[in-house]
């Protein structure tokens, strides 16, 4: 997003570009990052519903939605997805939090 001059801004603090926060990358807040182990994934969508940052990438084109991975631009590394991921309880975690090397 390019910065505007004061005269070009809409009055009253109105933001005219709906959803432009998507341009703001919160990925650099992370210390840990979820590592996706596709072979263990049952595509249940729990990670998707519980993520606070809309950072789960899902392919909805087919009959059954497919978890594709993490959207690293926005994932803050909270680990909620890995905590709620059901296969982890059976020792076959599909999401594992690892320290991110930058």
């Amino acid at each position: 997003m390019s910065l505007k001059r004061a005269q070009e801004l809409p009055d009253a603090g109105i933001i005219t570009e709906a959803g432009n926060a998507v341009d703001f990358k919160t990925g650099d807040w992370r210390t840990y990052v979820p590592q996706f182990h596709e072979e263990n994934c049952i595509h249940c969508m729990f990670c998707w519903i519980y993520c606070p940052d809309s950072a789960i990438d899902v392919d909805t084109s087919g009959d059954k939605p497919q978890m594709k991975g993490i959207l690293l631009d926005h994932c803050k590394g909270c680990g909620i997805c890995a905590t709620e991921c059901p296969p982890a309880a059976k020792g076959k975690a599909a999401l594992v939090m690892v320290r991110e090397e930058k």
């Binding site: 926060a21 998507v22 919160t26 519980y50 606070p52 809309s54 959207l71 631009d73 803050k76």
Partner: peptide, 15 residues
């Protein structure tokens, strides 16, 4: 509600 909001990591409110 798009990503890129500034809630704390793990904020259940944003969810």
């Amino acid at each position: 509600l798009t990503g890129g909001h500034r809630a704390c990591a793990g904020c259940t409110g944003a969810n």
